[in-house]
Computed example of a mutant assay.
Amino acid sequence: MTLGVALDASDADNQIDATVRLAQEARAAGLRSAWFGQTFGADSPQLAAIVGREVPGLHVGTSAIPVFGRHPLLVSSQAQTAQAATHGRYHLGLALGTRLLTETGFGIPFERPIARLREFLTALRQLTETGTADFHGELLTATTPLPARVPGAEAGVPLLVAAMGPQALRASGELADGILPYLAGPRALEEHIVPAVTAAARAAGRPAPRIVALVYGVVTNDADAVREKAAEQLAFYEQFPSYARVVELSGGRRAADVAVIGDERAVAAEVRRYREAGATEVVFSGTGIAGAAARRRTWALLGELAG
């Protein structure tokens, strides 16, 4: 199992420079991967490409690009460029997104998300593996009157999905290389998520999927105070049924209940629980919530566990 971190320097004077510095620090601590969220700010694949070039040996990934408001041709171009720039160390994450952000931000209806995900993955797989596509679905069309291959990205791009619900897990098992569940504790992984996506992959004749568990957590001696702060930050996710459901399946009532917060022994024990629940990779986010010293302490532990 590999260990990584999600990096967010969106409050810096220059987000790109600051992210590169954080990535260099993470790699020096022994971490294996760095992941970047996609909002309406910095472009995640571009950020990953820059970091991957600046920090050799570090795998980089997007977690995750919503399929609404994008097109497979454009996302393939971004992903292949990042893959070539990093010489095979880029991992593309996709997401359904949410009705709130889709309809408010893009002004398009959030309709038939699973069908759109299936069509998006099917067309994108053609593009990233062959550089061509001839896909005509109900919701998407992707054809290539011009070549869509980026030289240097011949190995293809790993496709992951931020899937947690039954239908999204089924589609991901059949069409993707793995999943990126967030705020899903070990119980939800072991009893619901991993069995569902693994069964779907097996039925489709695909290899066992990667399970990249995104965990909100930090090492600290003041767990109560940090958890209270985490509850404020994570409350945003509680309005979305998919997150509320997976928190409940994890045995929690609020999103902060599944956060991994405590001293080194407590956090290491939780990492082991994720591994035993089926996670092939664990990526920590929110490590800066208690300040730079706590972040460095967290990364030092994760680097030690990764080694």
Results as ranks from 00 to 15, higher is better:
248 E>A: 15
82 A>M: 06
214 L>P: 00
87 H>W: 08
143 T>A: 11
110 F>L: 10
255 A>D: 05
103 E>Q: 11
139 L>E: 14
207 P>Q: 11
53 R>L: 13
165 G>F: 01
142 A>Q: 00
149 R>Q: 14
59 H>R: 15
32 R>Y: 12
23 A>P: 09
103 E>R: 07
230 A>N: 02
123 A>W: 03
109 P>W: 12
12 A>C: 09
18 A>W: 10
32 R>I: 03
113 P>R: 03
173 G>F: 01
160 L>E: 07
295 R>I: 10
304 E>W: 11
164 M>E: 04
79 A>G: 09
100 L>I: 12
242 S>Y: 10
207 P>D: 11
194 V>H: 00
187 R>K: 15
45 P>Q: 07
108 I>D: 05
269 A>V: 00
47 L>V: 02
147 P>R: 05
30 G>A: 05
270 E>G: 00
153 A>T: 03
206 R>L: 02
51 V>F: 09
187 R>Y: 01
258 V>A: 00
212 V>C: 12
113 P>T: 04
141 T>E: 15
3 L>V: 10
117 L>P: 07
123 A>R: 01
107 G>P: 06
133 A>Y: 03
167 Q>V: 08
209 P>R: 03
273 R>Q: 13
168 A>E: 06
121 L>D: 04
61 G>W: 03
183 L>M: 15
298 T>A: 08
148 A>R: 01
285 S>E: 10
277 A>S: 03
62 T>Q: 05
108 I>A: 10
62 T>F: 10
131 G>E: 11
57 G>F: 07
204 A>W: 05
289 I>L: 15
162 A>W: 07
19 T>V: 11
111 E>W: 05
191 E>C: 00
221 N>G: 15
261 I>Y: 06
203 A>C: 02
71 H>C: 01
64 A>P: 03
78 Q>F: 09
232 E>D: 13
98 T>W: 12
44 S>I: 08
230 A>T: 13
190 E>W: 02
215 V>E: 00
183 L>N: 09
115 A>M: 09
218 V>A: 04
145 P>H: 07
151 P>E: 01
116 R>C: 00
253 R>V: 14
266 A>C: 00
106 F>H: 15
144 T>K: 03
173 G>W: 06
201 A>H: 00
301 L>A: 02
138 E>A: 14
171 A>V: 12
220 T>M: 01
7 L>N: 04
249 L>P: 01
276 E>A: 11
292 A>I: 12
8 D>F: 14
28 A>H: 02
177 D>T: 07
15 Q>C: 05
54 E>D: 08
49 A>Q: 04
138 E>C: 03
38 Q>W: 11
256 A>M: 02
247 V>D: 08
144 T>F: 11
112 R>D: 13
145 P>S: 02
305 L>W: 07
195 P>C: 05
182 Y>F: 15
276 E>S: 02
285 S>N: 12
196 A>P: 04
86 T>P: 06
57 G>S: 06
31 L>N: 03
167 Q>C: 06
126 Q>L: 11
115 A>W: 04
233 Q>N: 12
147 P>L: 09
55 V>R: 03
206 R>G: 02
